[in-house]
């Protein structure tokens, strides 16, 4: 594994236009503390970049993506000029709110594959304190660039052929920032990409895993916890995470997470946006069966509003459900309506 080229550029906000691009860049040496930092970024990029992404098709439906073209062009001949074109693209989508950024473009070889890492450090201010012999020197620093900042962004791509490079991985610590729209800036606008797993595909796997876990467990507490979580899931609409991340947002207990994850074990790393329409399609109804043969069914999101539940005194397990309304339908059937699971 070896870095072959590193180029760096100071990228000013340019989304509003009206200025002449003056991006300055430099080629970096392969030694020293800065190289050590960038080498660590390069080596750990595939684990640090935890969002699987893919380039969008062209607006005309063709296999044309401007950002992908720039990356492949750079990898063909990594140099300051080709790297600057990438920086210029970033400049056109960078707003004043995102501010000044320091961009690193790194190319390397991994066996037969080319590896490309792009990393943006946001600007910040800092205080430098230096102990001298007799005194302490304290200095205010502008234009400090820090990887640990909440708005650090990066992406990594790796392939053996120019025909590939359609998928990569990204990290964006602002991915769920829906207030500033910063979440769209790196992956959506600059990389002209989206999550590799579509919202519907990821949500479907999650919803069916929830449904199957509730259906197949004999543990009533697991069934109840999943049912309660589903009732409140609408608050997660539009959020981006993976299945363990959504389970954490739902405050699910470890035993419930274990039960759910058994039905989605190949997909636990998939990052996706929760699609509420898809989610509710697979978990539309909640049913409770009582030991007296009674069955209560209502829309999942309204179940607790439709049926009032009362714990009966003297019994931990006995409950009374009550409801009020006008009869609008009645059915006879040859079997019990299938419960959570069909």
């Amino acid at each position: 594994m070896a870095i072959e080229y590193i180029h760096s550029y100071l990228v000013h906000p340019g989304k509003s236009g009206g200025h002449t691009s003056q991006i300055k860049g430099t080629t970096l040496a392969h030694s020293g503390k800065l190289f050590d930092l960038l080498n660590e970024i390069y080596v750990t990029s595939e684990t640090q970049c935890d969002i699987a992404i893919s380039f969008n098709q062209g607006e005309d439906g063709s296999q044309k993506n401007a950002c992908r073209d720039l990356f492949i062009d750079y990898l063909g001949t990594p140099n300051l000029v080709r790297g600057r074109r990438i920086a210029e693209r970033l400049e056109t989508v960078t707003t004043r709110r995102s501010g000044l950024g320091l961009l690193f473009v790194i190319a390397g070889k991994e066996g037969r594959e080319s590896k490309f890492v792009i990393s943006r450090f946001p600007t910040d201010t800092a205080i430098l304190a230096e102990e001298k012999q007799e005194e302490l020197s304290v200095q205010f620093l502008e234009r400090v660039f820090m990887k640990s900042a909440h708005s650090y962004k990066a992406a990594v791509y790796r392939d053996s052929s120019k025909a590939g490079f359609w998928t990569g991985r990204a990290v964006d610590r602002q991915i769920n920032d829906q207030v500033t729209q910063a979440s769209a800036y790196w992956i959506g606008e600059f990389l002209a990409s989206d999550f590799e797993v579509t919202a519907a595909a990821g949500t479907r796997i999650f919803a069916i895993a929830l449904r199957n876990a509730a259906r197949d467990t004999q543990d009533v507490s697991i069934k109840s916890e999943i049912a309660a979580a589903v009732t409140l899931a609408k608050s997660l609409k539009g959020r981006k995470s993976n299945i363990p991340g959504f389970e954490a947002m739902m405050n699910l207990s470890p035993k419930v997470r274990k039960a759910i994850n058994e039905y989605a074990s190949d997909h636990l790393d998939d990052q996706f946006q929760l699609d509420w329409a898809e989610f509710s399609q697979h978990l539309a109804y909640r049913s409770i069966e009582l030991d007296n043969g009674g069955m209560l069914t209502a829309e999942s999101s309204k179940f607790d509003d439709v049926f009032h539940r009362e714990q009966l005194r003297g019994s931990a397990a006995e409950v009374r459900f009550s409801t009020e309304g006008r009869v609008v339908g009645e059915r006879l059937g040859k079997s019990k309506i299938d419960k959570l699971g069909k």
């Binding site: 893919s54 380039f55 098709q57 439906g61 063709s62 296999q63 359609w166 989206d194 590799e196 579509t198 519907a200 595909a201 479907r204 898809e278």
Partner: peptide, 10 residues
């Protein structure tokens, strides 16, 4: 189009 990511549509 809901479930798969296109790189070309014709």
């Amino acid at each position: 189009e809901k479930y798969y990511r296109p790189i070309e549509t014709r």
